[in-house]
């Protein structure tokens, strides 16, 4: 279970305080998917940063597997992120000058995975996103969709427990975006991760087990998906 409890986050000081998040609470079971939706500036990204321990909340807790992410020391938080979390961003953030292989290797290197095990993990991840034939290409030569698939491969290579995706389809056309989403969900299911996904895309949000709607820093609507889920084909 992942529990977000009364998260409040303010920016600025005294006269100029801006409340980006105010008393946000929700919970999600392990292995589920959560869509965080809402207008621009409503605090979606801020919430994600706090959930992943990248940012500190003013008050509140984020419990993951029994730990309060917000209370971890920096070293512990680093370790936690290296071993249990991963990120996908709207603008890919792949290293253009490095090869596809080297991009995917980064989280494994950071987590200190033994060099012998890396190759196999990387190849599996690249097969899953259908980029194995580009393994030695420079990342800058990939198309937008391929770059995002690469970002997904990088996000799943270490079999993380929690995947945070901030508008993963924001920079892609609708067809490519739909394929990426398809891919993301199937992989997530196959490795049993919990997926937090910030999106403007209604269709994408509908696919998630739960939708958290943000407005002016508040979670104004938490919406569970009707019980039965369509069976998805797992690509492996």
């Amino acid at each position: 279970m992942i529990e977000v409890k009364n998260i409040t986050k303010t920016y600025g000081k005294k006269d100029n305080v801006f409340t980006a998040l105010s008393e946000v609470s929700f919970s999600a079971p392990e292995g589920s998917s959560v869509a965080i939706i809402g207008k621009s500036g409503s605090g979606k990204s801020t919430l994600m940063h706090i959930m992943s321990g990248l940012d500190k909340a003013d008050s509140g807790e984020v419990l993951m597997g029994g730990h309060d992410i917000q209370k971890l020391k920096r070293k512990q938080a680093d370790n936690f992120r290296a071993n249990e979390m991963s990120f996908i961003f709207q603008s890919f953030f792949v290293e253009g000058n490095q090869t596809v292989y080297q991009n995917v290797a980064l989280p494994l290197e950071i987590a200190g995975v033994a060099p012998r095990r890396r190759k196999q993990l990387i190849e599996t991840a690249l097969k899953n996103v259908e980029l194995i034939d580009k393994i030695n290409s420079k990342a800058k030569n990939l198309s937008g969709g391929q770059k995002q698939r690469l970002a997904i491969a990088r996000a799943i290579v270490n079999n993380p427990k929690y995947i945070f995706a901030d508008e993963p389809t924001g920079n892609l056309d609708s067809v490519t975006g739909a394929r990426i989403v398809e891919l993301l969900f199937s992989i997530k299911d196959s490795i049993g991760s919990t997926l937090f996904i910030v999106t403007h895309d209604h269709e994408l949000a509908e696919k998630c087990d739960q939708q958290v709607r943000m407005s002016d820093g508040r979670a104004i609507d938490i919406h569970q998906k009707p019980a039965q889920r369509p069976v998805r084909k797992v690509m492996l």
Binding site: S52, L54, R74, K75, D78, N79, F80, R81, A82, N83, M85, S86, F87, F93, L106, P107, I110, A111
Partner: peptide, 8 residues
């Protein structure tokens, strides 16, 4: 990115 991925 590296720091987000847990690099100390």
């Amino acid at each position: 990115l590296m720091k987000a991925l847990g690099m100390s």
